[in-house]
Design a protein around this nucleic acid. Sequence first.
DNA 1: TCAAATTTACTTATAGGTCAGTAAGTTGAT
DNA 2: ATCAACTTACTGACCTATAAGTAAATTTGA
Lengths: 224, 224
Amino acid sequence: MATDTSASAPPEHDAIRKPKPQARTLQRREDVLRAAMSVFGQRGYNKGALVEVAEQAGMTHAGVLHHFGSKEALLVAMLQYRDGEEAAGVPGRAQTEGPAFLGHMLDTVEENTGRPGVVQTYTVLSAESVTEGHPAQGYFRDRLDGLRDKIAGVLAEVTGRDADESEVRDDASALIALMDGLQVQWLLDRDAVDMPRIVEKVMDELVDRLTTRHPAPPFPRPQD
Amino acid sequence: MATDTSASAPPEHDAIRKPKPQARTLQRREDVLRAAMSVFGQRGYNKGALVEVAEQAGMTHAGVLHHFGSKEALLVAMLQYRDGEEAAGVPGRAQTEGPAFLGHMLDTVEENTGRPGVVQTYTVLSAESVTEGHPAQGYFRDRLDGLRDKIAGVLAEVTGRDADESEVRDDASALIALMDGLQVQWLLDRDAVDMPRIVEKVMDELVDRLTTRHPAPPFPRPQD
DNA sequence: TCAAATTTACTTATAGGTCAGTAAGTTGAT
DNA sequence: ATCAACTTACTGACCTATAAGTAAATTTGA
């Protein structure tokens, strides 16, 4: 929250050569954030201890508190950092357009297969966030909401439907749910599910169905 | 509040009375288990405190420990109790056959809409269980595995396919993932998703596809 | 030398588990 | 039927970790 970074204006020549105190600080903060991802991912937020985060970042837990103020603030910072990192990972980044976005999602699923830590961080924290007064509740609510909008939009664009159609929105929700749900199964048993294969197939079917049965849903819904 | 046990003097020589003191004990244990479901559901296992469980069951935390030995054992007992309860809720119960099972699943989704507590208990604990050394890990692994088998079997039966086909198994995994994933979204925002509607539609599509394209998958997979 | 970074040393909570004791049964021999 | 011997179901007090947060001292770097 409070961007207490009242620090001086960042010197534009902050090359890698001269590690100014603040340049170095940024690196340390990042170390802490990475450590937080690892610890909160492996243990969850509640059980994850600041001492362990600190250790992995090479300092004491008081040092971590110095940088982030509180455990809660650290979690929030970590979540934002993770978003930024994810966005930065993609070349075209930002808002990938149309079908490319679906492809990008699939790529992510494939990549995730090689980094259970990241998957676990997301899975554990998102589920934990539904508990009473969890600090990440707003974050995940917003994230899911935004993702749903985004996917519905892309789906509409790809299939020539309207993003407001309940069928399209339902499919967006379903796609997100599928990916999240698969992660839990996969984390509990890596060999039990082939995430990329399943997601790809579902995406194909879904786009196909939406495209083929163009204007209206195929069956009348008695209840509604 | 505590020792109201002295109240109704149990008629010792009155025929079909519960012979053992365990009759009452069983009830108390059940109280504790229900309390555990509520507390662990709302706070998760790690943050859920024994004192709170105890309070809700009308005893002290030492009393809870007397019955269950440890917090971990309590969780395991709770999970088993939950299974038993769920099974008991269904009349025909045990192994519902064929298409009836899919209907039963859908009914459950519909019922769940009215009891967020139960949904939350499952959602939070299953995700939490993927963390290092979590006591419920085995439980959820087994549960998901069994459910996958069951659904694959039912799907095979309904559509005339083989339960060993990877497509059928994938669909079983996907269906479970869908339901679990939707729960997270729903718990974070009740109005964001209509769980029963989505699950019903997906089930329909899924059965339809599996039935229509009978023997073999429709398209050759270039990469594999 | 000044300020930020970081440590050391505490404080304050919380929480699981142990333990001795007690009240209310239960059982068995007389 | 009664009473001693024993068991069960607890409670209250206590112990021990663990963990977050704070304050003051110390180091480090420009």
